[in-house]
């Protein structure tokens, strides 16, 4: 591959520097023998929406799952080199409790995965496993989370009905609400709208806009219009390398790398 992936020079240089919360440095990541990420260095900034774009298999989901160590579940997956620091703590250090990390860094998955319980129990699940038993506290959190995910008005009358009766878009927002209930600071979204119709997608995007005020959000998406609509910064990945990471405006209006330009204008990918 004769493409010049010059990463370091194209690091984001924002005019008014916000605070970075996730600092990735020289990250090499591999599933067994096949390396998935090469030398990734990027900072993700507080209370911004960062979008990861790129063709399938380019490593964007892998990187996302590194941020809350979901890759630990895969036996052969391991970090070969480099560090990820969240709030200046190396999250792959031995003294890091994965449980605490995942409470801090919530995740919403590509396929909405509500548990086959009632809507209420779905939201309360995260609290219950932490040992919260007080009904009033649970009620309060369930309501605030559902309101936070803009779902309260739609489901307030049927909290005890099965979550599987909701529509696809509602299910995905329920999953977001479920994540909010454990009060994370960062929310990772792995193609949250890929299974949704345009109307539901619009609602989720609206929600992302709203959540930005209080949370740092990282979104993986295949949909470039979506990246353009919701994100403040966009990172373009290709073949496991970070090709370009800039403000969204820059990436879509004035990409520096020819690959990025080709991808965002739909000429390949």
């Amino acid at each position: 591959m004769n493409v010049n992936f010059d990463i370091q020079e194209k690091q984001a240089q924002p005019t008014k520097p916000p605070k970075p919360v996730i600092k990735t440095k020289d990250l090499d990541f591999a599933y067994g023998d096949s390396q998935a990420l090469f030398n990734i260095s990027m900072d993700i900034f507080k209370k911004e929406v960062t979008a990861f774009i790129g063709p399938s298999g380019c490593g964007k989901s892998t990187l996302l799952r590194c941020f809350n160590r979901m890759n630990d579940l895969i036996n052969s997956a391991n970090i070969k080199k480099g560090t990820i620091r969240i709030s200046d703590i190396d999250i792959y250090n031995k003294d890091v409790d994965v449980i605490e990390l995942r409470k801090h860094v919530g995740m919403v998955f590509q396929k909405s995965n509500p548990f086959p319980k009632s809507i209420y129990e779905n939201i309360a699940y995260g609290m219950r496993i932490q040992g919260v038993k007080k009904r009033s506290e649970l009620d309060e959190t369930v309501e605030s989370s559902l309101r936070g995910a803009a779902l309260w008005d739609e489901v307030k009358d049927r909290l005890n009905k099965s979550a599987l009766g909701l529509s696809g878009g509602q299910q995905q927002r329920l999953c977001i609400a479920r994540t909010l209930a454990v009060k994370p600071k960062i929310i990772l979204m792995d193609e949250p709208c890929s299974a949704l119709d345009p109307v539901a997608t619009a609602k989720v995007e609206e929600l992302i806009h709203k959540l930005k005020k209080n949370y740092t959000i990282v979104v993986v998406t295949h949909n470039m219009q979506q990246a353009a609509r919701v994100s403040d910064r966009t990172a373009f990945f290709y073949l496991g390398r970070l090709v370009e990471y800039e403000t969204t405006e820059q990436i879509f209006m004035n990409p520096k790398n020819s690959k990025t330009e080709a991808y965002v204008s739909g000429r390949f990918g």
Partner: peptide
């Protein structure tokens, strides 16, 4: 489904909690 496990773990459940509840 794998989603039940991932969803539960991503909410900060330990492995055993995840198995026991989900």
């Amino acid at each position: 489904p794998k989603g039940f496990r991932e969803g539960s773990l991503a909410l900060g459940a330990t492995k055993w909690t995840c198995i026991r509840t989900n």
